[in-house]
Design a binder for these strands. Structure first.
Lengths: 146, 146
DNA sequence: TTTGAATAGTTGCTTAACTAACTATATGCC
DNA sequence: GGCATATAGTTAGTTAAGCAACTATTCAAA
């Protein structure tokens, strides 16, 4: 029998992302308690810049699964907070390269620590192999809809 | 070894809910194509009223995992669209009971069909038992953080 | 019975997402 | 070279989330 019917509750939870929003809210609370003055969305941009500094806004769009206007405004706000700087590319003047400021570099260890802590709390009672299955299912869902 | 470390990619995906946002976006596109003129968030409120009509805004908060201001504004917009009506409770005048209009009742079959269709596309290549494990992991995550 | 706490809902403010329309630069083809 | 097209980014408008502060009503305890 194919998966052509869902009970109402599971359908709703899959679509609304109950679990991931709970994780994001918890992490945001930790940021606030630590006076990090950073939204989860802003953090998600810094996250990719910590991996590779000096990438374009378009690359940030791809990495964070956001559209261009969303990244424009997140970079606007991160610039206001003195966490990143736009530098026009010399090879292609359409492109803004986004660079971390020293201030942003200082935030990496603390915020990544809080993120890991949050995930540990979220998954503390879940066996490793079930986490792996869950991860793979979510990846397949994403690929199926991409 | 406890789950005290995560690879960067999986950490990010768990927190940002890549899969559930992909599902929500796909469903929103189907709503738009069908000229349903309904946001996913508005649909998520109607979803619970179709299950049980005439519940309070507070009950909608609990059911949809939203805070009170969010529900106030969603109900505002649903009222403007002539999809729900606020009726003050006679037993407790603090409470608004929210009722579906005939217009909203007509939307149920079509929109729920599109939601089921979306989930089938998302999960079409995933074995049933892995879906069950994924569901249970996400439920545990939610419970751990609640 | 009155006063203080709890509950239901609203309003204001900031941040963010999506769409559509826009500007500027680069590329490719004739 | 010149023109069409594609790409990078911005702006405007609507919807929504989270927080804090607020009003109105109910309830409970002195």
């Amino acid at each position: 029998m194919p998966n052509n019917q869902f009970k109402r509750g599971e359908l709703y939870s899959f679509i609304t992302g109950k679990a991931s929003t709970a994780i994001a809210r918890r992490l945001q609370k930790k940021f606030n308690s630590a006076a990090l003055n950073l939204t989860i969305e802003q953090w998600s941009v810094l996250y990719h810049l910590w991996k590779q500094d000096g990438i374009s806004q378009q690359e940030l769009c791809n990495a964070t699964f956001r559209d261009k206007p969303s990244i424009t405004r997140l970079v606007d706000n991160l610039e206001k907070l003195d966490l990143v700087k736009r530098i026009a590319s010399k090879e292609d003047r359409r492109i803004n390269m986004i660079f971390l400021t020293p201030r942003a570099q200082q935030l990496q260890d603390q915020s990544m620590g809080l993120a890991t802590e949050t995930l540990n709390e979220a998954l503390k009672t879940v066996p490793e192999e079930q986490i792996e299955i869950c991860k793979s299912v979510l990846q397949i869902v994403y690929d199926n809809l991409k």
